[in-house]
């Protein structure tokens, strides 16, 4: 019993310690397999989010470093570490708000459906009961579950794997953030795949911030507001989406 109590104590202390660590360097948890928002080029992590966060950090005056991980680990990492933020094209959802806070929304990417050409899917209802591939823990995952039911969603570690299964005709469709879908299709250059004309309501992206770090949240929000006023997001959209996207106002 004593041992057990000691273990519990040790665990509690570990959890407590992480909260007490107040370092100036911000850890940026990200899943850099998500072009054009964050992806690896050479040794560097680059993309829309990366440019934006660099601008925010300059305005707010803090140092940061990237910590790459699986997407489904990002929100957890933020929830347990006050000095970690999640920058990974994270949609702002009520479920996530239970664990973390979000910055002001900065972009609405929108979701699209990719299917084999000639699939005949024209509405969301056509996708009911079909096998839909997604990346685990993404907004696409949640939407797909609403549409086709939990047992019909195939959740992969990366969107690329989901699209490859679609290429092999092993699943019926992939729901994916539009810019990511466009980027993947452009690099695969597979004429048997197409983006369907089906609109799926998406959420805004936000930066995930630990609930105990209100100070950091304030800094980031202020920076985003300033950047918006300077028209920075329009430039960013031009650079990564070639216009077309709905940038934060």
């Amino acid at each position: 019993m004593k041992k057990f109590l000691a273990m519990i104590l040790a665990m509690a202390m570990m959890l407590g310690c992480t909260a007490a660590l107040a370092d100036e360097t911000i850890i940026v948890a990200t899943n850099p397999e998500y072009p054009p928002f964050e992806y690896v080029e050479g040794d560097a992590i680059v993309g829309y989010d990366v440019d934006m966060f660099d601008a925010i950090a300059k305005k707010a005056g803090f140092e940061y470093e990237f910590l790459p991980m699986d997407f489904d680990a990002v929100v957890n990492a933020v929830a347990t570490n006050p000095n970690t933020v999640g920058l990974s094209g994270i949609s702002i959802t009520d479920e996530r708000k239970l664990s973390v806070n979000f910055s002001l929304p900065y972009v609405n990417a929108g979701l699209v459906v990719i299917a084999k050409t000639g699939s005949g899917f024209t509405t969301v209802d056509d996708l009911k009961g079909k096998i839909i591939g997604v990346q685990l823990g993404t907004t696409s995952d949640f939407k797909a579950e609403e549409i086709t039911g939990m047992e019909n969603v195939a959740q992969y570690k990366t969107f690329l794997n989901a699209v490859m299964e679609l290429q092999g005709n092993k699943i019926d469709a992939v729901i994916i953030d539009e810019p990511v879908g466009l980027a993947i299709l452009a690099s695969l250059n597979d004429p048997t795949l197409e983006i369907l004309d089906i609109e799926i309501l998406a959420d805004w992206y936000g930066i995930a911030i630990n609930k105990d770090n209100a100070e950091l949240q304030q800094k980031i929000d202020d920076a985003i507001t300033e950047l918006q006023n300077e028209g920075y997001f329009d430039q960013l959209a031009q650079k990564y989406f070639g216009g077309g996207e709905e940038a934060a106002e």
Binding site: N76, A79, S99, L136, G137, Q155
Partner: peptide, 9 residues
């Protein structure tokens, strides 16, 4: 993994 992606534990 699935439950974790829903509860963020």
């Amino acid at each position: 993994d699935y439950i974790r992606s829903r509860t963020f534990s």
